[in-house]
Design a protein around this nucleic acid. Structure first.
Lengths: 206, 206
DNA sequence: TGACTATGTCACCGTATGGTGACATTTATA
DNA sequence: TATAAATGTCACCATACGGTGACATAGTCA
């Protein structure tokens, strides 16, 4: 279990071991299982060093957040979006959003934990998510000025579909089906993307 | 804090006090704060009675689930739905779904907790939710046979919108906004319902 | 009444937690 | 080289947890 540290006295290495221990426990058992004792044990280090080097558990958590990429980069999303028209863009965004989340298991754990607890992890996620969200929606608005004419309906649908994608992607880590849909299958998500595209298309045609 | 029980020796009253203590703690602090000591303290009863009368914490939880209504009744939803056409039906379902959840704060807590933990609460919720969901979708299918012609797209959109409603309603207990939408305002949800209705209408027209 | 059960109180155990102070040893500085 | 700081180990504290056995008292039934 414990990554034994030999006699090496290296502050940076110890801090790194602690940070990695946090991530490893969070991924294995969830953020709820984090604690000084468990983290120190996992890092193979005395727990007192957490207080010495990070002052707090929260200080350690903040250090983890600073090193982890908790959310997608806008460019990473944009380059997977088909900007042919607003509808196809939104359909492909769903798939890109889901893939970006799946690439970040820590983000999935934080998204799950933020439903019940507030921690440095969740506040860090809130912040970066809000920034990226605004950035992305601005890029959408810039490419599709015609969307403004249709009121807020398209924006609302985008938010709804984004929320659903987030929720179902997190849940798909634990459950197989939601309302009959096999939310772990890529095929299902292609159908979801298509249905969303067609819906928004109908919305714009009206 | 502790609801003092006087000298009354009444097994049923004690069991009731324990059950109510579970609910009260769950609503105040979340399911994660439940434990023998806290529950017994809240009920003003010795913790050993939990083991005597319910065998386990899980036994007590199951008793709580048996008495609580963790999910909406289908009739309660159906009577608020406008079955004029599939699109308006789905739009009104969103509002009915949200209202039914808001009426059940314990359901909201369980929905939040099931993201990170599995407990008798979450399995009970899973079961009743699945049953009611199937029932409701059958009623939809019976009233709108024309939906079958449009493939699974409408069903998929119904599931997505249901997931989004569930997620955003739970989150609205803790946060004010999601992607710029004020998810606590009833006005916002009317707009959401309208956007969803128009989307599905467009989907059926295509 | 007497015996027995049901109900409830209390003290206690082992374990784990978050947190702190005292000590040892390595490294760097004067 | 002598001194001080940095790094790490260890023992310990108070608290809370889940869980159990021993005991007191109220109700019930023969």
């Amino acid at each position: 279990m414990a990554k034994r540290k030999q006699n090496t006295r290296d502050r940076d290495a110890t801090k790194k071991a602690l940070i990695e221990a946090v991530v490893s426990i969070a991924l294995r058992d969830g953020l709820g299982s984090l604690g000084v004792n468990a983290i120190a044990r996992q890092a193979g280090v005395d727990k007192v060093l957490i207080y010495r080097y990070f002052k707090n558990l929260d200080g350690l958590y903040e250090a983890v957040c600073a090193k982890a990429d908790l959310w997608w980069n806008v460019d990473e999303i944009v380059e997977q979006i088909d900007f042919a028209n607003p509808a196809t863009a939104l359909g492909s965004y769903i798939l890109a959003h889901r893939q970006a989340l799946l690439k970040r298991p820590l983000a999935l754990k934080v998204l799950a934990a933020e439903m019940t607890d507030r921690s440095p992890f969740t506040v860090a996620l809130e912040k970066v998510r809000e920034d990226r969200g605004k950035d992305l929606s601005q890029r959408f608005a810039a490419r599709f000025p015609e969307m403004a004419g249709h009121g807020a309906a398209v924006l609302i649908m985008a938010n709804l579909l984004s929320a659903a994608t987030q929720y179902l992607t997190v849940r798909s880590q634990d459950i197989e089906r939601f309302g009959g849909m096999h939310i772990r299958d890529d095929d299902t998500w292609i159908e979801i993307s298509q249905a969303a595209k067609n819906s928004v298309q109908g919305l714009l045609a009206s």
